[in-house]
Design a protein around this nucleic acid. Structure first.
Lengths: 337, 337
DNA sequence: CTGAAAGCGCTTACAG
DNA sequence: CTGAAAGCGCTTACAG
């Protein structure tokens, strides 16, 4: 890699001028600019980002904080991959790179500062937070430290923070409306872990639509899971023990819905004839598992792209951070209802 | 963030000494070292990585090249997530961060150099390549440029390159042995795209075991797909048209196997009674889809961890790069055979 | 429109 | 064991 000095020498100009060609081209004369550009292409010059970062305090790197829930190492958000792809592409288009942050492990460091330090150390410009709702103090500390943050499906507030989320409440309403339209009146639900915001909102929307339609939802019709398959299986078994049994179930996450379907089959019941089931997320399995899982789809690509846009807006950062964004959810009808 | 100068001043030593405390602690006196360390913790000092990178040419960042196949934007390697988690953890443990590389988009840049330039620009120490077998020239150029590379399931060679892969050949053998043991003699296969190395090796292993057992595999018993579901569906339909029909099929990837199962069901046939099917990969769906897909499992965590280890070995880089690593594959029996 | 110079925060021979 | 100094490759007021 040739340096800026080398390029300047070859062009017979100062390094300052070369620098301007790449940073504020409008202030340098057309002739000089073109000459420098041509020569740069010829000798393969590219500014060294470390040097640039050192001088400007901006790295063009966005940090990704993910999988911080130690109770669930390797947590698999079913969408992570779709979101990542969209996020990465949108960020790339702006010349931003994505750095997967490892918490700083320096001895003697306050654990709550692990991410803040990693961010400072690497001069990361901003951080995208994909979190299980664990409220990890090390993550929350990012907001307090004034790091620009965009959180996914997590209410994350601070002077330079915003978040992006699916319309969980609206999705819950859609689920209820669909079951009602199918003629169900004896309806139960399996929620996510209730402190988690998406779980709370999905339940609230579901409940609101039911109430409006005059369909009851007793507390005994509500079971909770932890988003994962086994918890859906267990919750469904509890619901199956009710008398009378529900004729339809809204599982607030597809993984749990799949677990519930298994429980229903094990009980020798048929879907949707004996029990109808609707999920939330629209993960790949939903379309593959017979008879097909009806579900409320989230716009995964939109989430990734939206997060990137919000981040770019904050980084260009004239104005205050963009407000929270809510993306629409949609009903996808398959065989399970 | 306080700088090294500030810390040196407070400790009454030179910046050189502070630097040594963090880089070659053994050469500084116990007293001084402790004093500097204490004061560093007190004022929250952490070396600035950009400055360090500029001075040393090492960034402690490993690049990740992924999803470079433009024919398949957002390519979903079914394991990517598991591999990523393992890779990231293992790298983190060594204090290495993972930078998701965006190809350099500078105007006038040779497209084949996009990744090399991104690597040079950011002083990335090494690169992990997760590729669809697309043989993207921009990826291959990394090897030529002398960038330390570890590739996954891709034969990637060069002075500072190595790769890690599942025992595809052995897995193919396992699949054949299993079907033979189940009594099948009329066996067909759906391969991956044949230029792709894993596809070639799985077929070779499968064929070898069949030959040893004296079970025929005519060319007409071989269909190919592109790893994805729809291609498995189409290939299975072609196999169903054969007379006599195969009684068992080895689909060299689970996604294709799932597509094949759908085709079998659509034809009104039963699994495994009319046709048995075995896949390869052991993705999540395999366990969820009735009657459960028998498959050859890859060690996803092992792949991620192995890649990290190989990378660390190369970066510490005394010796030549470690040789290619092959990880065992295992048979997972479910209802489909 | 352009150049000389200081500065970003570190590391590392070179001396002592 | 420690310090003074040069250097890593850039950017950006400050002058002109």
């Amino acid at each position: 890699m040739s340096s800026i000095r080398e390029l300047a020498r070859r062009c017979g100009v100062s390094v300052a001028t070369v620098s301007r060609v790449f940073n504020t081209p409008e202030v340098v004369s057309q002739r000089t600019r073109q000459h420098v550009l041509d020569m740069a292409a010829e000798i393969g010059y590219l500014p060294n980002e470390s040097a640039r970062t050192l001088a400007t305090k901006k790295s063009n790197m966005v940090g990704l904080v993910w999988d911080t829930d130690h109770r669930r190492p390797g947590w698999r958000h079913p969408f992570l991959q779709d979101i990542l792809v969209a996020l990465k592409s949108a960020l790339s288009a702006q010349g931003l790179h994505l750095l997967m942050l490892a918490p700083d492990q320096s001895a003697g460091l306050d654990p709550g500062q692990r991410f803040v330090r990693a961010v400072q150390r690497h001069n990361v410009d901003g951080v995208v937070v994909i979190d299980n709702g664990s409220r990890d103090p090390a993550v929350l500390a990012l907001a307090d430290a004034g790091v620009p943050c965009v959180a996914l499906d997590l209410r994350f507030t601070g002077p330079r923070c915003t978040y992006i989320t699916s319309d969980n409440h609206g999705g819950g309403r859609l689920a209820a409306a669909h079951l009602i339209e199918r003629g169900h009146r004896r309806i139960a639900t399996i929620t996510g872990p209730l402190p988690a915001w998406p779980a709370v909102r999905r339940l609230a929307g579901f409940r609101a639509a039911l109430a409006e339609a005059g369909v009851p939802l007793a507390d005994t019709d509500i079971e909770s899971g932890d988003w994962y398959l086994d918890s859906g299986h267990a919750a469904m078994n509890r619901l199956l023990a009710r008398d009378p049994r529900p004729t339809a179930v809204f599982a607030a996450g597809d993984e749990m819905a799949v677990g519930a379907m298994r429980a229903i089959h094990e009980a020798g019941l048929r879907i949707p004839d004996d029990i109808a089931i609707i999920g939330f997320d629209d993960i790949e399995v939903a379309a593959l598992i017979p008879p097909g899982l009806t579900t409320i789809a989230q716009d995964k690509t939109g989430i990734g792209t939206g997060a990137a846009e919000a981040m770019v807006a904050m980084l260009l950062g004239t104005a205050p951070p963009p407000g929270p964004t809510t993306l629409p959810t949609t009903l996808v009808t398959r065989g399970s209802t």
